[in-house]
C-alpha cells in the first residue's frame, strides 16, 4: 500500500515540477514585478498609474470590446457550422478541413490576408470586375475583426462539435417521438446539452483575443489598440517592465473572471 502511494508521488514529481517552473513561478514573478518600482522597492504606484490613466482604461475597454465582438462573430458562425458538420456522413473529414488552417503559421495567414485585402489585392481586383473602384479595406476595424475571427474560428468549432457529437442521437429521436418539433428539439434538447462545448469555445476564443497584438499592427495598422500593444511597448521599447507586468496581471484577472463566468455549474449539470 505504502509503495503504491510512493509510486504515485513519484509520478507527480514531473507534473509538479512543470507546474512550479512554468506556471506558478512566472505568475509570482509577474505579480512581484508589478508591485515593485525601478529600484526594486515595493509599491502600488504601477496600479495607480494604470487606473489613474484614461489612456489605459480606454485601451482596456477597447480590448474587452473587440474580444467580445470576435467571440460573438465566431460563435454565430461556429454553432450552425458545427451542427451541420455533425449531420454529415464523413464528418471527421470535414472537421479536418476546418482544422487544417491551424497547421499554418499565424503570421503567414496574416500576410495572406494582406495580399487579399490590399488596394491592389485579390478582393479589389475582383470588385473592379464589376466596376467598383478600389476600396480601402486594410487598416479598419472590420478587416481586423474579419482576420481575428478567421484565426479563432477553429478553436470555437472544435469544442462545440465535440459536445454535439457526444449527444446521444436517441435523445433527439425521443424528443421527436414525444411531439416536439424540430425547433423545440433544438432549443430544449440540443442547445442545453451542448452548452459545455459553447462555454469551452468562448473561453478558448475570448481569452486569447484579449491580448491579440500582431494583427492589430499588421491588419489594423495600429488603428485598433489593445492591451497587447501596450505590453509589447513596455517590455521592448520603454523597458518599463514593472508597468508591463501590471497590465499583464490585469489581463490575467480579466481571464480568471471569464473563466468563472463561463465555468460549468456542477449542480445544474448533475441533475438528471
Amino acid at each position: 500500500m505504502k509503495s503504491k502511494q510512493q509510486r504515485q508521488l513519484f509520478y507527480l514529481v514531473p507534473y509538479g515540477a512543470w507546474l512550479l517552473l512554468f506556471v506558478i513561478a512566472p505568475l509570482v514573478l509577474l505579480l512581484f514585478q508589478s508591485l515593485t518600482n525601478a529600484n526594486g522597492g515595493l509599491t502600488l504606484h504601477n496600479y495607480a498609474v494604470y487606473f489613474g490613466s484614461g489612456t489605459y482604461l480606454r485601451m482596456t475597454f477597447n480590448s474587452v470590446w473587440f474580444a467580445f465582438l470576435i467571440t460573438l462573430i465566431t460563435l454565430v458562425i461556429s454553432y450552425p457550422m458545427a451542427y451541420l458538420l455533425n449531420q454529415l456522413k464523413q464528418k471527421q473529414f470535414w472537421l479536418l478541413l476546418v482544422i487544417l488552417p491551424t497547421w499554418i503559421n499565424l503570421l503567414l495567414k496574416t500576410y495572406a490576408f494582406i495580399g487579399l485585402l490590399s488596394k491592389t489585392g485579390t478582393v479589389n481586383n475582383f470588385m473592379s470586375f464589376f466596376g467598383i473602384a478600389p476600396q480601402q479595406l486594410l487598416f479598419s476595424d472590420w478587416s481586423f475583426l474579419l482576420v481575428a475571427a478567421y484565426i479563432e474560428i477553429p478553436f470555437m468549432i472544435l469544442p462545440i462539435f465535440n459536445s454535439l457529437a457526444e449527444i446521444d442521437p436517441k435523445l433527439e429521436q425521443a424528443s421527436r417521438d414525444l411531439g416536439a418539433n424540430k425547433w423545440q428539439t433544438l432549443r430544449r434538447v440540443i442547445l442545453p446539452l451542448s452548452m459545455p462545448g459553447v462555454k469551452a469555445g468562448i473561453q478558448a476564443v475570448f481569452i486569447p483575443s484579449l491580448s491579440l497584438f500582431m494583427i492589430t499592427r499588421l491588419i489594423g495598422g495600429n488603428r485598433v489598440i489593445t492591451l497587447g500593444t501596450a505590453i509589447e511597448e513596455h517590455f521592448l521599447v520603454t523597458q518599463n517592465w514593472q508597468l508591463g507586468s501590471t497590465i499583464g496581471v490585469i489581463l490575467i484577472v480579466a481571464m480568471v473572471v471569464t473563466m468563472i463566468l463561463t465555468r460549468d455549474r456542477v449542480k445544474k449539470n448533475t441533475r438528471k
Binding site: Q136, L138, F139, R217, L218, G221, N222, R223
Partner: peptide, 8 residues
C-alpha cells in the same frame, strides 16, 4: 494617418 506600422 492611414496606419502606424513598422517594417511593413
Amino acid at each position: 494617418v492611414k496606419a502606424i506600422i513598422a517594417d511593413e
